[in-house]
C-alpha cells in the first residue's frame, strides 16, 4: 500500500501540491489523471523519492520514503520518469541489466541474467537486445526503459507518462504490457496518464488530481462519469458507452 499523509510541496510559484491524503492499495493499475499543471507528475516523483516533501509523510509498503535508505527502497519501489536523456551508449540488454543493480550491485549473477532475459521477453525486446539505445525508435526505447524497471523486480512500479511520444499502436501495446505486469507478475503499478480514455480502459482505479489536490479517487467506473470528469478537467466532458466500456468525449 502507498500512503500519503498531509503531503505538501511548493513546487514552483505556480504549482503548489497539497495537502494530500491518499491511500493507493497494493495490486492492480492506478492511474493519476488531471489537467496540465495539476501536480500528477510531482506527486508521483515525490512517492518515488526523487523529490523531497515540504510537509507530511509518504509510506510505500510501510517504509517512509524520506527516511528509508535509498538502497532498501530500490528493492520495493522503482520509478521511471518521462524524459530519460541518456548519452551513454548501452545496448538494450545492458540497460535492462542495470535494473538488477539493487540486487547485485553491478556484478550480475546467473539468476540476474535470467531475470533480465525474462523482462526483455516480457516486453518483446528479444530481437533488439543487442542493439544500442541510440539506434532504436522512441517506442522501442520506451519499452527498454520499462523492461529495466520491471527487471528491478519491485512490488511497486511508478511510471510518469509512459505513453508520451508513442503512437496509437504502441500506446495500446504498452498499456497491455503494463496490465499483464500487474496481473501476471502481481506488481502494483501507478501511472500518470494524459489520455483519460486509456485510464478508463486499462486502470483499475483512477485518482483525479486538480490544483495540487486529490479531487476524486476510486474504481475507474466511478470516475468515468460526465459529472466527475467535467469537474476534474474544468471543461465539458460527456461519457458515452463505448464497445469496451465508458468513453469520454470532449472534442
Amino acid at each position: 500500500m502507498i500512503t500519503l499523509r498531509t503531503v505538501s510541496k511548493q513546487y514552483s510559484s505556480e504549482v503548489r501540491i497539497g495537502p494530500v491524503d491518499l491511500e493507493i492499495p497494493a495490486g492492480g493499475v492506478t492511474a493519476l489523471v488531471g489537467p496540465n499543471g495539476a501536480g500528477k507528475s510531482t506527486l508521483l516523483t515525490m512517492i518515488g523519492r526523487l523529490l523531497g516533501l515540504d510537509e507530511g509523510t509518504i509510506e510505500v509498503a510501510g517504509m517512509d520514503v524520506s527516511t528509508t535508505r535509498s538502497k532498501d527502497l530500490a528493492k520495493v519501489l522503482s520509478i521511471l520518469r518521462q524524459e530519460n536523456h541518456v548519452v551513454t551508449r548501452l545496448t538494450v540488454r545492458q540497460l535492462v541489466g542495470f535494473g538488477r543493480f539493487p540486487h547485485s550491485q553491478g556484478r550480475l549473477t546467473a539468476a540476474d541474467e535470467e531475470r533480465i532475459s525474462e523482462a526483455i521477453d516480457f516486453l518483446h525486446l528479444g530481437e533488439l537486445e543487442g542493439r544500442y539505445l541510440d539506434e532504436l525508435s522512441g517506442g522501442q526505447r520506451q519499452r527498454a526503459y520499462v523492461a529495466m524497471v520491471l527487471a528491478q523486480d519491485t512490488e511497486y512500479v511508478l511510471l510518469d507518462e509512459p505513453l508520451n511520444n508513442l503512437d496509437m499502436k504502441h500506446s495500446v501495446h504498452m498499456m497491455r504490457h503494463l496490465r499483464r505486469a500487474a496481473e501476471e507478475l502481481g506488481r502494483t503499478i501507478v501511472i500518470v496518464l494524459h489520455d483519460i480514455n486509456f485510464a478508463g480502459r486499462y486502470a483499475d482505479r483512477i485518482c483525479a488530481v486538480q490544483g495540487g489536490r486529490v479531487l476524486e479517487h476510486g474504481p475507474s467506473a466511478q470516475i468515468m462519469t460526465s459529472e466527475v470528469l467535467t469537474r476534474v478537467f474544468d471543461t465539458p466532458v460527456q461519457v458515452i458507452d463505448g464497445p469496451d466500456g465508458p468513453l469520454a468525449v470532449y472534442y
Binding site: 523519492r49 535508505r69 535509498s70 530500490a74 541518456v86 540497460l95 524497471v149 528491478q152
Partner: peptide, 21 residues
Amino acid sequence: VADRFTVAGLGEEIATTVGLH
C-alpha cells in the same frame, strides 16, 4: 566503482531509482 559510475551516467533519477546515492 566502475558500475556505479556507469549507473550515474544514466542520470540522477535512474541512479536514484536503483538505489544509488
